[in-house]
């Protein structure tokens, strides 16, 4: 069991990331209906691109997971692929969203290629970390931070897309699903981090540095709003 202060440290980082995202001008524009149709579509494209590769990322985490955390990560992976009892394939839900947003076959092909390109980039980028355990921790922290955010904001994002982009509720199941599923995942994710730190005997100082490296920019703004133009007030909302 890691010290409570360590768990608090991680939760504080997650909360800071989510707060900065929620307060960013891009999120505000989306939620308040001020964004253009092109901005909504760019957001939908980026969101789908980000989460289409979740099975691959979870597979990586399963490979590096300590024995205690592996069953939970495996369950999340099967759930993502629709191979659990609920049998809802999450990437399929993202394509339902993309179709409802009017993405034609060509654009959906580009979407799949863009997601795959990000996996390729992950594999070809020179590695700054010296060991797989450090890289694995950084990825685990980012994934669990996404779960933390989705458990708090997925439902609001879904409602914004229904209200301001006119998407029907049946196309927004991905958001409904994540707002529910990720409340559980967010807590389990922190348990997994805790088990990971203990198994690999990662010291508190190294955890602090890896947290700093992983969250030196806002991961949600980076993934969801990379293609959108700079907005006034955005500079200080980076973290």
């Amino acid at each position: 069991m890691i010290a409570l202060s360590t768990r608090s440290l991680i939760e504080t980082q997650y909360a800071d990331q989510v707060r900065a995202f929620e307060r960013s001008p891009w999120f505000q524009r989306l939620e308040q209906g001020q964004a253009s149709p092109q901005e909504y579509d760019a957001f939908i494209f980026n969101l789908c691109q980000t989460h289409l590769k979740s099975p691959q990322i979870l597979s990586f985490l399963y490979a590096v997971a300590p024995p205690e955390a592996a069953p939970q990560i495996k369950h999340n992976l099967l759930e993502e692929l629709g191979l659990d009892e609920a049998a809802i394939c999450h990437p399929d839900l993202l394509y339902v969203l993309a179709t409802a947003a009017g993405f034609d076959r060509e654009r959906q092909t580009r979407l799949a290629e863009a997601a795959q390109a990000q996996i390729r980039q992950l594999c070809t980028d020179p590695l700054l970390f010296g060991t797989m355990q450090e890289l694995g921790l950084s990825v685990l922290l980012e994934v669990t931070c996404f779960e933390w955010m989705l458990s708090r904001l997925a439902s609001r994002i879904g409602k914004a897309l229904a209200a301001h982009r006119g998407l029907p509720s049946e196309s927004l199941i991905w958001f409904d699903h994540h707002s529910e599923v990720d409340i559980r995942h967010a807590e389990e994710g922190l348990d997994s981090v805790e088990q990971y730190l203990a198994y690999y005997e990662i010291e508190a100082e190294d955890l602090e540095t890896i947290l700093d490296i992983t969250f030196r920019e806002n991961i949600f703004i980076k993934r969801y709003f990379a293609d959108l133009p700079a907005l006034a007030g955005a500079t200080h909302e980076n973290r």
Binding site: Q121, T124, D125, P126, L127, L128, F129, G130, K222, A226
Partner: peptide, 21 residues
């Protein structure tokens, strides 16, 4: 891309562990 939001090259230019490139 360690400093720039996006760099211009298709393949990353930045160095890796130990500063090696």
């Amino acid at each position: 891309s360690l400093l720039l939001r996006e760099d211009l090259s298709r393949r990353p230019i930045h160095f890796g562990h130990q500063g090696l490139a």
